[in-house]
Nucleic acid binder design. Sequence first.
DNA 1: AAGTAACCGAGACGGTACGTCCGGTCTTTGC
DNA 2: GCAAAGACCGGACGTACCGTCTCGGTTACTT
Lengths: 208, 208, 208, 208
Amino acid sequence: MATAKTAPPASRRRESSRLAILDAALALCREEGYTKLSVEAIAARAGASKQTIYRWWPSKGAVLLEALEREVAESVTIPDTGDVVADMRIVVGNLIRRHADPNFGPHVAALIAESQQDPALARDALERFVKGRRAPLAERLRRAQQLGQLPASLDPEAILEVVFGALYHRLLLRSGPLDAAYGSFVVDVVFTGAAARLDPATDGSHLR
Amino acid sequence: MATAKTAPPASRRRESSRLAILDAALALCREEGYTKLSVEAIAARAGASKQTIYRWWPSKGAVLLEALEREVAESVTIPDTGDVVADMRIVVGNLIRRHADPNFGPHVAALIAESQQDPALARDALERFVKGRRAPLAERLRRAQQLGQLPASLDPEAILEVVFGALYHRLLLRSGPLDAAYGSFVVDVVFTGAAARLDPATDGSHLR
Amino acid sequence: MATAKTAPPASRRRESSRLAILDAALALCREEGYTKLSVEAIAARAGASKQTIYRWWPSKGAVLLEALEREVAESVTIPDTGDVVADMRIVVGNLIRRHADPNFGPHVAALIAESQQDPALARDALERFVKGRRAPLAERLRRAQQLGQLPASLDPEAILEVVFGALYHRLLLRSGPLDAAYGSFVVDVVFTGAAARLDPATDGSHLR
Amino acid sequence: MATAKTAPPASRRRESSRLAILDAALALCREEGYTKLSVEAIAARAGASKQTIYRWWPSKGAVLLEALEREVAESVTIPDTGDVVADMRIVVGNLIRRHADPNFGPHVAALIAESQQDPALARDALERFVKGRRAPLAERLRRAQQLGQLPASLDPEAILEVVFGALYHRLLLRSGPLDAAYGSFVVDVVFTGAAARLDPATDGSHLR
DNA sequence: AAGTAACCGAGACGGTACGTCCGGTCTTTGC
DNA sequence: GCAAAGACCGGACGTACCGTCTCGGTTACTT
């Protein structure tokens, strides 16, 4: 009656090489910066051959993406205290703290940068880093909408784009410090309408 | 009569070379994309020598920055109809139209990307492209604050960071179409408090 | 039985590239002259990359040196008729014929020239071209010394320096035609004492 | 009639520039070696412009040639003790001493090297440095021929080529020390027939 | 247990671009 | 009208990585 014990076709890929390469990529990025990161350097540092890298990743950006993913694998739990603004304040605070970390923020910046010239990486980064990790956040907003705490007509993902956009602005353009105060400011503007015009005559009227 | 006899020593720089180089940089960027842009290619296309480029610009990014600057040199006049939200709607609409132009937006994205690995370019781009061109806009917001149309406590530049951040998010991450609808959405969120929570119990209370 | 199982690690160097590069160097030198010879040109002509050249040779001079070596690889047999002067006449005649060849002499001249600014090439050229190829000739002179046909007190290598020096003088300074007559003259002066002073009173006395 | 105060058409060439350039060339050559010698470097050191150099000299080699000429301008007097071999011993000794000087020999070598790729310089160097400076020496040999101290059938210039060739061999190929012993050896070989074969049966017979 | 095929390290290879240097020409400005 | 200053085009330098390609050696699955 035949064998086929268990194992799926199973790639013969060596896990030790994979990890060494991811580690080397991260380490190089931290020590020398993304600029100095090259497939050649990763291979040398990891004791791997370039071929092995090219066999499994399409580009150095993809290696870094996977390395970063491994780093932040611990699932981020979204608080739900019932107060969506308060929750957002916490979440944005955490996000900012993480992106202000010189071991994380600049790498994200580098990936966004690399994405400009590498459509495949762009797609991957968008899917796995942006949409993927943002999903529970969007879900939290949707719950708030159902509770009538947020206008139901607004696309939660779009709102998050405004929030993250503000965050990335400081990350990418260094237009100011990426700190708690800025995070608070952004939450105020987006979730409390802090910047809404005061003129009572027309306030909100365009929204109908 | 007494006129100023002697002009300043005056750089011996040849204007024709400068323009040829800027034109070549833009043309190459449009035809082949920023990736294919190289000092070598610019020099060849401009009929200039690499040395001439390195004499006057520190990097290919700096060349493109100056070329783009020349392109958008025509002063952008900020409307002032008295209604700051309406004005912002117009301004953001124009901004989006410009950045959606495949002959402009991707180049801005490329410069932001390049800035991540080139501090000098980052500084330049921030100063000349971001702060410089945004100044009249901030001024417009300040005027609105004086008229009580906008909370005086908010830093206009920071508000603009949220607006531009949202814009750049779509430009850099391609998380959705960079179109008029999105622009309108962003203005709503930022300037009319469209995403402010509806819950009347706590509305705005945290602001004071 | 026990044969050597494992071959030496063996360089992975590709012979086809090596030959293409040597051929290209020679061809370029012949067609355009040593001045026009550049690593860049060799690489282009050979369909090789510059890196490949720099990997295996320290300079363009070294490439040409090896190319020339390959050209004259056929072992030059030194005649030994018993008459050392007659043999030298033949050898010097051959040498002159070879160096008068526009496909050889000028390249040797170029290498000597290049050696003035490249100590490594100088060492190589001296070892492989001068001492190496001259060794059998020195051996021939040493045999003549043993037979009493040549003063045993004279260093054969030094004698050859006089002979080759005279030859190179015409090659490098173009002070006159590099032809058989000159070769004969040099052999006369060096090996028959043709220029020795006739004055019998003091002849040779200083030698003891 | 008329003006024409005094000066002949007279080049307006500035002597101070000329001297500064020659001095700079020599100094650079001594301090850094001929390799580092460039028109650019000479101009910078001399406080002159490149154009001034190119106006008056065809190449950097020509500058050095003129500079060296100025250095050895003091006429070299050829001794004439009546004993041509003794005189030659003195002359060759002086030549060797001069060429062994690191401030002279290497420059001569460099000029000979440069001549290989610069026909104009080759012509100049041959005429002004070789033939010109060797003329009194040839004259001395001609006198010896008239006195029957040297075979009249031999071209004195050709004899000198053998002598200088031997000298240049050591200078250019560094095949051995360029010292008094070598000079003495060369004089012995050329002017006393020290290397002439000893075999009495055929000695000199081939000369007729 | 042997055969075999994917995987691995190593690193040579053809390329492209880098940023620098120098050659030789041309232009501007001052004496 | 020559000279200093120096910008300019051109071309080669030697280096760094790219992405592809063998080469042997080592697993780990198959038979």
